[in-house]
Amino acid sequence: MTELSLRAARPEDLDALCALEQRCFSSDRLSRRRLRHWIAASNRELLIALRDGVALGYGLVLLHRGTRLARLYSLAVAPEARGLGLGKQLLTTLEAATTRRGRLYMRLEVAEDNQQAIGLYQSLGYQRFGTWNDYYEDHQNALRMQKRIRYVPENLQANRVPWYQQTTPFTCGPAAAMMAMASLRPTQELSRGEELDLWREATTIYMTAGHGGCHPVGLALAAQRRGFKAQALINRQGPLFLDGVRSSEKKALIELVHERFIASAQDNGVTVRYQDVSQDDLARWIARGAMILVLISTWRLDRKKAPHWVAITAIDEECLYINDPDPGDDQSALDCQSMPIARSDFDRMSLFGRDRLRTAVVIENARAD
């Protein structure tokens, strides 16, 4: 009998993959359409295991753009091949391939009653870090597990930050601010009403398209009103986001809102610093217990070049870690919590627009020095 061979899945494997999906899973199956999509996609590793031309298993890992995080999306082993170590062989090969593509962590979800799979993952170093209730079609809970697949030093400092999903396309700033404030004060409200209140307080009125986003000084003022100490850092003076608006009337309104924010900051003791934001600065603030909101360009995440606020949860020698309030099409809430971003990637990601704006909001408990 020939040995098992593993190789990248090809279009001609579609029928075999569909057959494995039907044989190995009773629910939450990937459709033929989705399998065809993943065969053709570039942001994945998809391996098929064969013996004598017969497919006995496959593994699919998703590689999310702009992060160093990978997700084991599906691992299937045919009934007749179980007990041969194929699951372990598939997963370790996928880890190696994923590491070569610059990912640092692998995450997965597994049904909490699937002891065989849980045992496999634990034997390979995966650790449980949470539970996702009512995750599967049959309402079973899923264990959340993670493994560091490329060594990086332990986090220098980490904040426990709850995750909140923005409920509109334009409220990433309020969602990130609520996460940051709730990390510092567990009683902080996390609700759609609070999300919209924060947006109304901090909006720039207009953006390139749709509703306005949030101004860093507006977010700092909103946090200060809620009893926190806040400051805004901006790498240049003058009104922000003007390059995305063509109408002279809209530009005038954005300029007026900017001026009002700056005046209100002066009146209310909110510091506005006109300086670049270095990663050393971020590390120092996190070490003293502060929470930081950073404006990024989503180009490296979704190729849309939109301004987007995220909350930094930790930083170490290799990565910054962010809570992103907006899951993408192929992401779940699990993927958006403490997402690792390589430092070199973050430097480019945290510059926005033709003016190369870099800005952050630092939020601390009011008793901080």
Rank of each mutant, 00 (worst) to 15 (best):
N155V: 14
G85P: 05
I363G: 07
W285G: 00
C336K: 13
L196P: 09
R160W: 09
D335A: 05
K304C: 09
R128T: 12
R107Y: 12
I254S: 00
Q266F: 05
Q275M: 12
L84R: 12
S264M: 09
Q224Y: 11
G125I: 07
S26F: 13
Q188T: 10
M145K: 06
S5N: 07
A252G: 10
N141D: 15
S332P: 00
G53R: 00
A8C: 15
L75F: 02
R236I: 01
K147A: 01
L184G: 07
V362H: 05
D335H: 08
Q188G: 01
H139T: 13
R348I: 11
E137T: 09
Y321N: 01
R101N: 11
L91T: 04
L50Y: 05
L30E: 10
L56P: 00
V110Q: 04
L6C: 03
L20M: 10
A96R: 14
D281Y: 11
G53A: 04
K251R: 12
G66P: 02
Q224D: 11
A9H: 02
A220R: 01
A158W: 12
A158C: 12
R128H: 06
Q224P: 03
T2G: 11
G212T: 03
G289W: 08
A306L: 15
L104S: 12
V277N: 06
S26D: 14
L196R: 09
N365E: 14
L282W: 14
R185N: 10
R33C: 11
R300F: 05
D134E: 14
R260V: 06
I39D: 04
V77N: 04
P239N: 09
A306H: 03
Q266S: 15
R284D: 10
L35Y: 02
E317N: 05
Y321M: 06
R284P: 00
D330Q: 09
G213D: 11
P79R: 02
R128Q: 15
W163H: 14
L35S: 05
E189S: 11
K304D: 13
L20R: 06
R343M: 10
N365L: 15
L20V: 02
F129M: 08
A360L: 09
E154C: 05
L6Q: 01
V362I: 14
A70Y: 00
L219Q: 04
D347T: 08
R246K: 15
A41V: 01
R200N: 13
P186T: 13
A314G: 06
D276R: 09
L4D: 10
E137R: 11
V294K: 14
L84V: 13
G210F: 06
A283S: 10
